[in-house]
Design a binder for these strands. Structure first.
Lengths: 211, 211
DNA sequence: AATCCAACCAAATAGAGATTTGATTAGCCC
DNA sequence: GGGCTAATCAAATCTCTATTTGGTTGGATT
């Protein structure tokens, strides 16, 4: 019954990607609905057809898309029940890779949390905001849990898991700030480096590569 | 000759601190001159007496204060010419401590760089902006240089110094996001953890503590 | 006691930008 | 073909804010 998605029709995901890009460039508060619209050849007003709740809604949607993706990967890795060191290596790699594959979304997840937090508690999207923050907490907990388990099993050196997790995630998040598609290293290489760095920090040196 | 700094007179540094705080809470674009002014019991317009160039000027000033502080400490450490591992440990500690001692300024340095970068090249404060970015690059180079030196001297494991530096600084920057004065650990403890983590990552385990 | 000036304030000014509204267009279904 | 709705746009609205302007005020200076 609805109109067929014709040639000119802009897809929801296009808008989200555009929004993420603009958020990264100007920050949420600095981003203009017109900026976002221009990127998909729409006018500012037209965005409200796709996202009735407006700018706020766009941000939440961008963040949720990113979180969906990462969380799904992490949980798939965890389900394999590998030893802590291997699990952590895969988690770090997957996360870092996800960030390099969509830097804009990654950046939004880093830089715009503040925007969410300073959201008035009576704001209409407060509920959705809370839901996102909860998933974000889960994301972090996954990492911490693996680290704690590794310590208990004696695979990892004794570290304060809370801080270590923060350090790890800070380093990973920061990738979205400096990564360049045309840089010296690609996403996979960076991901590997990150994993190696933090496993080494846990006293778990790489299982001897080639010579 | 000027009026005596009487009771009500607000000091430049007070305004800067207020600005940093508001920037942290709302982000630069989201921060209001009125917000900042209120915090020091002034009106928005009055801020222009102290910072004629306005909001932009405030941001740059905040960032510069932070950079002055950190850079001075780093350079003082470097001047001692200690071995790479000890130098790095002190640098990490000093930096982390600086962040916890003034989280608002630390957060500004992390989150508002984007604001500077997206500044039009013909903006009046473009020059000052460039100067800041240059100092920021110096800051990062200090870390990388020490790491590279450590690798050459065989004190550190072989790592890709560029990425490792980014990872380290990402982790350090992130402190300004999660640190709470009333948290479980104080600044010094966090700083120590960070140093230990990254030295371990460089294959340079702590020089045997107690027990 | 007359002047000066830093430090303020209140009230414009000037725009920018999110959101709303009323129309328009083009496939789809009958 | 006629009617329906999704997808758009252009042109208001309506606020919110940076910045400017003109005026006070009170201690300093002389």
């Amino acid at each position: 019954m609805p109109r067929k998605p014709a040639d000119q029709t802009v897809h929801r995901t296009d808008i989200l990607q555009a929004a993420a890009t603009v958020f990264r460039e100007r920050g949420y508060a600095g981003a203009t609905m017109a900026d976002i619209a221009r990127r998909v050849r729409l006018t500012a007003g037209s965005l409200y057809h796709h996202f009735p709740a407006g700018k706020q809604d766009l941000l939440l949607a961008v963040l949720n898309v990113g979180m969906d993706n990462v969380l799904a990967q992490l949980e798939s890795i965890l389900a394999q029940n590998l030893p802590p060191d291997e699990t952590l290596r895969q988690m770090i790699t997957a996360h870092a890779l996800a960030v390099t594959q969509n830097v804009s979304v990654g950046a939004a997840m880093v830089f715009e949390i503040r925007t969410l937090i300073s959201l008035a508690p009576d704001d209409p999207s407060a509920a959705e905001r809370d839901a996102f923050l909860a998933r974000r907490a889960t994301f972090e907990r996954h990492f911490r849990t693996v680290i704690e388990r590794g310590i208990q099993r004696g695979v990892f050196r004794q570290v304060e898991a809370g801080i270590f997790t923060k350090a790890l995630l800070g380093a990973q998040n920061w990738i979205s700030v400096w990564y360049r598609e045309d840089g010296k290293l690609n996403g996979a290489q960076i991901a590997a480096h990150m994993a190696e760095t933090f496993l080494a920090a846990l006293g778990c040196p790489k299982n001897e590569g080639s010579t």
